[in-house]
Every structure is written in structure tokens, then in C-alpha cells.
């Protein structure tokens, strides 16, 4: 009798253990299915190169609030901020202060910086035809999910934004296939500002190169592309929207710095942006 009760007790215990283990498995299965996205393999990231960016992903970036950007500016994360340029005339194109970007599809640092740059520029104008891109699969921080400015367009009442992606992410003869060529003005800017003493001698010629009206300078990424590794676009956008995440703090701090510098060249316009950052 006692042995039977013991056996029943053991059986009940085993059943409970099995039920709980199965329940945990079901929870994980449901969680994965309900996730906005699941972790993508590198191949599936690369397969999206040059495809139009998902509207929800872009909408998530464009709707980052100014208070969140302002708060990020004061965070303690290691993201560097824009280097001021002094004594130079305002860079202008089409009667608007000009923001110049020079990068390349293969470049992992450009991959990181574009997230911050797109968020910042969305406060001053509108992007269209932004396409997905991944950085080189054979470079450091391989296949970092990002966008390409190639074939995109940007319209704004406040600034002229002229991005150039000089190379693709496709290897060719020890480098990468050419994409867009720089104008003489763009080359002159790089020769002057992407060089000592504006940058260290060791980082001269680096990309991304971002000249904010000849008043602010960014060479290289403001935060490490490591933060974005093994994540697809939806995951990165989701992390950026989570203001307590390390990714968000780094990207938004970088973005806020760009916004502040653009405000300087637009005479603090638009007011609703510049007075709230």
C-alpha cells in the first residue's frame, strides 16, 4: 500500500516535471513566433542587399522623438560626437547649407553611422528609395545590416544633403567595385578635412566622411559596428526604439550630435527640432 502510494507520488512528480518542461518549450516556441523578427543568417541578410527598405523599419527610425534624442546626448555611452570646424565659410549648395556624406557600401563603419545619420536627417527632410545594404562579408564587423544612399533621394527646405557611396560591397581585384564618383568639390573637402590636423594622421582618408556645412566633421563611425552584429534591420530598429538599450543610447547620441550641428548651419531651423534638442 505504502509502496503503491510512493509509486503514485513518483509518477505524479514525473508528470509535473514533463508538463513544466513542455510548457517552457511551448513558451519559447510562441515567443519566437511572436517576435517581430527572428535572428537572420548572414546569407538572408545579404539577400536583401539593394532591396527597398521596409516601411515599418523606416517609420520606426523616423518617429524617434526629440526628447529621446536629447536625453541620449547626455548619456554616458562611449559614442563620440561631431568635431567642430572653425574659421571656414559655410558650405552651400542650391542656396542651402550643405551636408556632405562620402562612404561606401562595403564599409562597416559607414554601416553603423548611416543609422544615426538617417535618424538625424529625417528631422530636416524626407528620404525616399532608401535600400537595404550589408557591409562587406570579408571585412571586420562582417555583413552589418544597414542602408545604402545609392539611388536614394532626400528633399529638404533646410539643407542640401548629397551622399556618395563610392564602392559596392562586391569584392573585385583586391578592392570593391566602383559605384559613384566624387565631384571636384567633394574631393577637395576630403583632401582638406579628412586629413591632419582635422583627424589624426592614422585615420586620414577614413570613411564615412561627413561634412556638416564646413562647421562640423565626422570621420569614421561615432560608435562601434560591433553593437549591430548578427542583427537584421527590424531587430536594430527595435533596439533603437528601446531607449534603455545600449544600441539605442549609442545611435541616438550620435544622431543627436549630428542634429545639433545641422541646427547650427540652418540658423536653428526648423525651430520645433532645434529648440528641443
Amino acid at each position: 500500500m505504502a509502496k503503491r502510494q510512493q509509486d503514485n507520488s513518483n509518477l505524479i512528480f514525473i508528470i509535473i516535471v514533463v508538463i513544466v518542461i513542455i510548457a517552457m518549450g511551448i513558451v519559447i516556441y510562441i515567443a519566437n513566433n511572436n517576435a517581430n523578427t527572428s535572428t537572420q543568417s548572414v546569407n538572408s541578410l545579404v539577400n536583401k542587399d539593394n532591396k527597398l527598405a521596409n516601411k515599418n523599419v523606416l517609420s520606426s527610425l523616423f518617429s524617434i522623438s526629440l526628447p529621446n534624442l536629447k536625453n541620449a546626448l547626455n548619456s554616458n555611452v562611449k559614442a563620440t560626437t561631431t568635431t567642430p570646424i572653425t574659421g571656414e565659410p559655410l558650405l552651400v549648395k542650391n542656396n542651402l547649407p550643405r551636408v556632405v556624406y562620402v562612404g561606401a557600401d562595403y564599409c562597416p563603419y559607414c554601416a553603423a553611422e548611416r543609422w544615426a545619420l538617417i535618424i538625424a536627417l529625417s528631422k530636416f527632410g524626407k528620404f525616399s528609395n532608401l535600400r537595404y545594404m550589408t557591409s562587406s562579408s570579408s571585412d571586420v564587423y562582417p555583413s552589418t545590416a544597414t542602408f545604402t544612399f545609392y539611388k536614394s533621394s532626400y528633399t529638404s527646405k533646410y539643407i542640401d544633403f548629397t551622399p556618395k557611396e563610392t564602392n559596392t560591397n562586391i569584392s573585385s581585384q583586391g578592392g570593391y567595385t566602383s559605384l559613384e564618383t566624387l565631384t571636384q568639390i567633394e574631393n577637395n573637402l576630403i583632401n582638406k578635412f579628412d586629413a591632419y590636423p582635422y583627424v589624426t594622421k592614422s585615420s586620414a582618408g577614413s570613411i564615412p566622411f561627413i561634412d556638416i556645412g564646413n562647421k562640423g566633421l565626422i570621420v569614421g563611425a561615432q560608435y562601434s559596428p560591433q553593437l549591430l552584429q548578427s542583427m537584421n534591420w527590424s531587430q536594430i530598429a527595435s533596439s533603437i526604439a528601446n531607449t534603455k538599450s545600449v544600441i539605442s543610447q549609442n545611435v541616438l547620441k550620435s544622431s543627436a550630435s549630428i542634429i545639433k550641428n545641422i541646427c547650427k548651419i540652418t540658423n536653428e531651423k526648423p525651430q520645433k527640432v532645434c529648440s528641443n534638442i
Binding site: M24, I28, I30, A31, N34, A35
Partner: peptide, 10 residues
């Protein structure tokens, strides 16, 4: 918490 990790925080 496991659900949050997988579904929400990824």
C-alpha cells in the same frame, strides 16, 4: 521573462 527575452527583446 523567457517570453520577453525571445519575443520582445530578441
Amino acid at each position: 521573462l523567457v517570453y520577453v527575452e525571445f519575443a520582445l527583446i530578441h
